[in-house]
Amino acid sequence: MNPRITDSSRDEDEQFEGCLSFFDVRGRVPRPLRITVETTTLDGEVATTTYHRGLASLIHHEIDHLDGLLYTARMRTGIDPIPVEEYRQTGHSWAYKQ
Rank of each mutant, 00 (worst) to 15 (best):
M1E: 09
M1D: 08
M1C: 08
N2S: 12
N2M: 10
I5Q: 13
I5N: 09
T6C: 14
T6K: 11
D7N: 14
S8L: 13
S8R: 13
S8C: 15
S9Y: 06
S9A: 15
S9T: 11
R10C: 06
R10G: 14
R10H: 09
D11F: 06
D11S: 10
D11T: 12
E12L: 10
D13H: 11
E14Q: 09
E14R: 11
Q15G: 01
Q15N: 09
F16I: 00
G18F: 02
C19A: 05
C19R: 04
L20R: 09
S21N: 12
F22W: 05
F22M: 11
F23P: 04
F23M: 05
V25Q: 11
R26N: 00
R26L: 02
G27M: 04
G27K: 00
P30Q: 06
P30K: 05
P32G: 08
L33W: 00
L33F: 00
R34V: 13
I35Y: 01
I35H: 03
I35M: 05
I35W: 02
I35P: 03
T36N: 03
T36I: 03
T36G: 02
T36P: 03
V37T: 05
E38Q: 15
T39A: 04
T40R: 13
T40V: 15
T40E: 15
T40P: 05
T41P: 04
L42N: 12
L42K: 12
D43W: 04
G44I: 12
G44C: 13
G44E: 12
E45Q: 14
E45K: 13
E45P: 00
A47S: 14
A47P: 01
A47C: 08
T48S: 10
T50Y: 03
T50S: 15
T50R: 06
Y51K: 04
Y51R: 03
R53C: 06
R53N: 08
G54S: 13
L55S: 08
L55W: 09
A56E: 05
L58S: 08
H60E: 13
H60Q: 14
H60K: 14
H60M: 13
H60D: 14
H61K: 03
H61P: 06
I63W: 06
I63F: 07
D67K: 15
G68W: 14
L69T: 07
L69F: 15
T72I: 15
T72P: 07
A73H: 15
R74I: 07
R74D: 10
R74L: 14
M75A: 03
M75H: 01
R76L: 12
R76V: 13
T77S: 14
T77R: 11
G78P: 01
G78Y: 06
G78W: 01
I79A: 04
I79N: 02
D80W: 02
D80K: 08
P81H: 03
P81C: 04
I82S: 02
I82D: 01
V84M: 06
V84K: 07
V84T: 07
E85F: 00
E85T: 04
E86A: 07
E86M: 00
Y87R: 00
Y87P: 02
Y87C: 00
R88Q: 09
Q89E: 11
T90H: 00
G91L: 07
H92I: 12
S93H: 13
S93L: 15
W94V: 15
W94C: 11
A95F: 10
Y96M: 11
Y96K: 07
Y96A: 12
K97R: 14
Q98M: 10
